[in-house]
Design a protein around this nucleic acid. Structure first.
Length: 646
RNA sequence: GCCGACGUAGCACAGCGGUAGUGCAACCGAUUCGUAAUCGGUAGGUCGGGAGUUCGAUUCUCCCCGUCGGCACCA
């Protein structure tokens, strides 16, 4: 005798278990047509499922946010059916919905290529047009195994075998085609609609494990209607335009080449940007009570053995050898990180509890032999520079330091144009140093510090560093990929391994806790993010070329050069454009290369000693006496941390 | 590292078994023009590297390097 409560609070009694379809029909034909699924007490269900007990019911239509996920998941099923119809012998594995779309992993001797897409898409449209209902069927484990074994679907058999004993095993069929699936689904394949597109193929390991076979993954995107699909495709094109690799080339910021794979050649423009960021970071760290140090690039392996990095990461370290016979037995490594070096500085002399928290910062150049497939523009490189710091503190200072750090990080991200970021909490990995009690303490300390700092995080199980749990601060690039930039890691292990000690108030010798932290992460990666975030149109204070002084006629060229030199002397990144080109042409050139301010000078300005400023790509012009213009530019180019507070 | 695709002038691209073209950029000349592309000319490539097939390879095959898209990795 279920009573169904609808979102408006109204209640409908039924004298027997009812399906969502029936309830929708009892409310009205419009809803019966529009409903594609339902939420029963908040849980998404097939419309055809029976409701036996009292429940709160909400119908899902295409307009609801849940609809996209259903469309995408259903679309993945249709993709799998289409592929098996067209390519017999292909085994299916899994096919979830993901952000913006879905994928399906297939096992086939010959991987798919984009050339297969037109045929597959055509077949998918055919299957969608058939409108076969999605039919759910619950089976026993043995039945499921027998079914998939008979079909030669070995991966499905493995999946079923790995399900928990009490797991309900459901199958979904659309016409003749059946897949193992938890559901829910929409009513039938026609509910998917026409707005989908296959995007790319990729290799992916079965169950995400590199020791397993590689499957052929087909990615697709799917939307409620064609308009949404077009908008998404358009957005992808826009994103490509701001790709940092493309802008890095166009704006002459940097390049990379074969002879130094994964390392950046910074050009003058790029280095100006880099320096603006580095100068800014130094000021912020100085103001926040950090002390900057500098430690060696090349360090004997003994230190890495002591820290534990050698054991875990030696395959990813660059080793340095020398010709000298006496030195030949030594193995040096380019430092892959700064922490062990910072502990060496900490260990010089005797530290007092009065020194703590000791915040030791380094603009640290590190090298890691990253797997070739991981390299990505300047976002993931082999030679990079961390805005690294280690805070040596007592255990009960962790929370206060975390609060301070998160405040600093938030403020810096805001200044740099990233008001939004996400936080992940990564706890103990399977392979780790330190005993469980230590990990309990470290994770507990970081969690309570998060609570104190008001940090919302999502748990990222098993992804911590080998020496401790970490917070990861994640930013998203133009193409929608997420990158870890900031990090905060609690470490009880390295101080132990490298024998860091301080004298406590009671005279005993104690181990400090080490907080590893970075805000940008790597300058290279963060600059990549900045390029994409601003699409190359940087705020004036970080722009590589802040002002171009463009002459209209040769008679004004000397004045243009004089002004550029004056601006440069006053700390503005300025240059003169005295090319024999029309002013129209110069305007276009400098708009295209994202110069923020164009100062135009002709005979009139040279005589009056004035400047006409134009903030590109705007059209407005402002004529100012030279000294006023300089003052204006200096004010506008002031980095955010140096602006006087109102 | 794994799967797949790609690599032609500084950049963006075309070509495709008979030793390479277009646009922009560069260089030279003319023009001195007041805010979204002035005109003319010149030069530039061992077609990523190596091997093989072929009378002949930028084009076909194999190996290597690099890049791109994923996966895996990320102290």
């Amino acid at each position: 005798m279920p009573t169904i409560t609808l979102p408006d609070g109204s209640q409908r009694p039924f004298d027997a278990p009812v399906t969502g379809t029936t309830v929708a029909a009892s409310i009205g034909p419009g809803l019966a047509k529009a409903a594609i699924a339902m939420a029963v007490d908040g849980a998404l269900r097939d419309l055809s499922e029976e409701i036996a007990a009292d429940a709160a019911l909400r119908f899902i239509t295409r307009r609801d946010p849940e609809a996209l996920e259903l469309i995408r998941h259903d679309c993945a099923h249709v993709l799998a059916e289409a592929v098996q119809e067209l390519f017999p012998g292909t085994q299916v594995t899994i096919g979830p919905s993901i952000e913006n779309g879905f994928y399906y992993d297939f096992h086939r001797n010959q991987p798919f290529t984009p050339e297969d897409f037109p045929a597959i898409e055509a077949k998918m449209r055919e299957i969608i047009a058939r409108g076969a209902p999605f039919a759910r069927q619950v089976v026993t484990r043995d039945e499921a195994i027998a079914l998939f074994r008979a079909k030669g679907e070995n991966f499905k058999v493995e999946l079923v075998e790995s399900l928990a004993a009490d797991q309900v095993i459901s199958l979904y069929s659309q016409g003749q085609w059946t897949d193992l699936c938890r559901g829910p689904h929409m009513r039938n394949t026609a509910d998917i609609g026409p707005a989908f597109k296959l995007m790319k193929v990729a290799g992916a390991y079965w169950r995400g494990d590199h020791r397993n076979p590689v499957l052929s993954r087909i990615y697709g995107t799917a939307w409620r209607d064609q308009k949404e699909l077009d908008a998404y495709l358009h957005q992808l094109e826009e994103a490509e335009r701001r790709d940092h690799r493309r802008l890095g080339k166009e704006m002459h910021l940097f390049h990379m080449q074969e002879e130094s794979t994964g390392n950046v050649f910074w050009h003058p423009n790029g280095w100006r940007l880099y320096r603006a960021l580095e100068d800014y970071m130094r000021r912020r760290l100085d103001a926040a009570g950090y002390q900057e140090v500098r430690t060696p690039q090349v360090v004997d392996r003994r230190l890495w053995e002591a820290s534990g990095h050698w054991e875990k990461f030696r395959a990813n370290m660059f080793l340095a050898s020398v010709e000298d016979k006496d030195e030949a037995h030594r193995i040096n490594a380019l430092k892959p990180m700064n922490c062990p070096c910072h502990v060496q500085i900490f260990n010089q002399g005797i530290r007092s509890y009065r020194d703590l928290p000791l915040r030791m910062a380094e603009v640290g150049a590190c090298h890691r032999y990253e797997p070739s497939g991981a390299l990505h523009g300047i976002m993931r490189v082999r030679g990079f520079t961390q805005d690294d710091a280690h805070i040596f503190c007592e255990e009960d200072q962790i929370a206060a330091e975390t609060v301070k750090f998160v405040a600093l990080l938030s403020s810096i991200y805001r200044d740099l144009g990233f008001p939004e970021f996400r936080v992940k909490f990564s706890d103990r990995p399977a392979v780790r140093a330190g005993d469980d009690a230590t990990w309990d303490r470290a994770e507990g300390a970081l969690k309570s510090a998060c609570a104190t700092a008001g940090v919302d995080y999502v748990l990222n199980p098993g992804e911590g560093a080998f020496y401790g749990p970490k917070l990861e601060f994640v930013l998203r690039d133009a193409i929608g990929r997420d990158w870890q930039c900031g990090t905060l890691q609690v470490d009880f292990v390295l101080p132990e391994r490298l024998d860091a000690l301080y004298t406590a108030e009671d005279g005993t010798r104690r181990r400090p806790v080490m907080l590893h932290r970075a805000i940008l992460g790597s300058f290279e990666r963060f600059i990549g993010m900045l390029i994409e975030q601003y699409a190359g149109r940087f705020p004036l204070w970080m722009a590589p070329r802040q002002v171009v002084v463009a002459s209209i006629v040769d008679d004004a060229a000397d004045y243009a050069r004089e002004v550029a030199a004056l601006l440069t002397a006053r700390g503005i990144r300025a240059e003169a454009d005295t090319r024999n080109e029309k002013i129209n042409r110069k305007v276009v050139d400098h708009i295209e290369t994202n110069v923020p301010i164009l100062a135009v000078v002709g005979r009139r300005e040279a005589e009056e000693r004035s400047l006409v400023l134009r903030r590109l790509p705007g059209r407005e012009q402002q004529t100012l006496p030279l000294e006023d213009a300089v003052a204006t530019l200096l004010r506008e180019a002031t980095p955010p941390d140096l602006l006087s507070q109102p």
